[in-house]
């Protein structure tokens, strides 16, 4: 199959990763043997393989959705799914459900860099303090479309919070690939962020403070 990455983008990534990657990054990809159930699994796997070829610190491990133990371990809900482990095997608690194409490809790259730094991310001091108040599991689902220029900001915010707080899972969900789930949450305008499966929700790529405020109002039950 022809390369998905243009030669120009490939070179850009080689340079960027050369400068930015600190430690190893293991990307776990979950696909499905039943192709009819996963239209974008092949394409997702291929772009990850091409990504891995740009720097030897990045490795890809491919799994099938029927590998129950692993699926259970990482709580994978649907495919295609992507997650990242740092050099010590720590789960960064970020998930991509659906292909990270279009503008979301940038999110994936940012996540690879952050994972290579063991989840070291740029968040304000006040956010870090608020995150310490989160003591129970919290799930952030960010519904996106690949053509939405506002969406990566919301995805990266959810992922950064997940990397920083051991209780947060941050997910990107490509809305078009999971129409039933999108319908369940009435997604019709993206980014649409669902907190704890419906305890809270908001639409739009809010600045950091406002984003965290939305989460904290759910955490505090107000």
């Amino acid at each position: 199959m022809a390369a998905l990455l243009s030669e120009e983008d490939r070179k850009y990534l080689v340079d960027l990763f050369e400068k930015e990657l600190k430690g190893e990054v293991k990307i776990l990809f979950f696909g499905s043997k039943r192709k009819e159930e996963c239209e974008y699994c092949d394409l997702t796997e291929q772009i990850l393989q091409e990504l891995a070829e740009t720097n030897n610190k990045i490795t890809i491990e491919t799994h099938d959705f029927d590998e129950t133990d692993l699926v259970k371990k990482y709580n994978i809900e649907m495919v295609p799914a992507i997650l990242m482990l740092d050099s010590e095997g720590n789960d960064m608690r970020i998930r991509y459900y659906g292909i990270p194409s279009g503008y979301e490809f940038s999110s994936l790259i940012e996540d690879v860099i952050a994972t290579s730094k063991k989840g070291e991310v740029d968040l304000s001091a006040s956010t870090v303090k608020k995150l310490e108040e989160i003591k129970s599991p919290l799930k952030l689902q960010v519904f996106v479309t690949p053509t939405c220029p506002y969406c990566p900001r919301a995805v990266l915010m959810a992922h950064k919070l997940a990397m920083k707080s051991p209780n947060i899972i941050g997910e990107m969900i490509e809305a078009n690939e999971f129409p039933d789930l999108s319908m369940q949450y009435n997604v019709s305008s993206v980014p649409h962020i669902i907190i704890n499966e419906g305890e809270g929700e908001f639409v739009g790529a809010l600045p950091e403070d406002a984003f965290v405020e939305q989460i904290m109002s759910v955490v505090k039950g107000v």
């Binding site: 053509t147 997604v187 019709s188 305008s189 639409v203």
Partner: peptide
């Protein structure tokens, strides 16, 4: 209906329709 049918961005949200 901001998140249930009202949109200001056709390229972002068009596919839902």
């Amino acid at each position: 209906f901001m998140n249930r049918g009202v949109s200001y961005c056709a390229v972002c949200d068009g596919s839902f329709f």
